[in-house]
């Protein structure tokens, strides 16, 4: 382990510079996020991820946000284990009927002020699974959505841009 740690000390960091906040996402947010809440939260947001029936593709890329290349925590974002600690719900999937109740309860357990970010094409309108009897057809069918990050799945850079846009509005 010493060998590896020593190498890490002498080599340049593997973490890459941040992308700019997504312009489209900023515009989408402008009308939805209240300024009053920004001051209260400062530059720190706790995120609770909820898989509401995704194929797990979105989860893989959300996971990647935590790796050393993207290093999400340097921006003040943190994934938390409980909705009670969260400011943001990051929701993926077409929202299956079987996850509707759990998603609603997770939302109810999240203290105000809170934001819902729908991640992936399924989360917008059901995507490829739209029209299935087993799905509600997007996060918006169950919860009020503040921001949508498109992609199947969105790449970590796309996710980061969307989240940074959310943070920009929080200043």
């Amino acid at each position: 382990m010493r060998k590896l740690l020593l190498k890490s000390v002498v080599q340049a960091p593997l973490t890459e510079p941040a992308p700019a906040a997504d312009a489209a996402a900023l515009a989408e947010l402008a009308s939805q996020v209240e300024r009053a809440a920004h001051r209260r939260l400062g530059r720190s947001l706790s995120i609770r991820e909820v898989d509401a029936g995704s194929c797990n593709g979105c989860e893989l890329e959300i996971h990647a946000l935590n790796n050393i290349v993207y290093d999400l925590e340097r921006f003040g974002f943190r994934f938390v284990a409980s909705p009670r600690h969260a400011d943001v719900l990051l929701v993926t999937g077409p929202v299956t009927r079987h996850m509707e109740e759990a998603l609603k309860r997770t939302y109810a357990a999240t203290p105000d002020p809170k934001w819902v970010v729908a991640v992936g094409d399924c989360a917008r309108d059901g995507g490829l699974f739209a029209g299935s009897d087993a799905c509600k057809g997007g996060v918006g069918a169950v919860l009020p959505v503040d921001l949508h990050i498109a992609g199947c799945p969105p790449s970590p850079i796309t996710l980061l841009k969307g989240l940074l846009a959310l943070m920009e509005k929080h200043r």
Binding site: S54, C58, H98, L128, F129, S132, A134
Partner: peptide, 26 residues
């Protein structure tokens, strides 16, 4: 996470079915 994938596959065009198959487990 039951999405009714088999029901969606039944009667789907080949192109759509292939995309669905690629999203059974991402």
């Amino acid at each position: 996470t039951h999405k009714g994938t088999e029901a969606l596959l039944a009667g789907a065009s080949l192109e759509r079915a292939a995309r669905l198959a690629g999203r059974v487990s991402g």
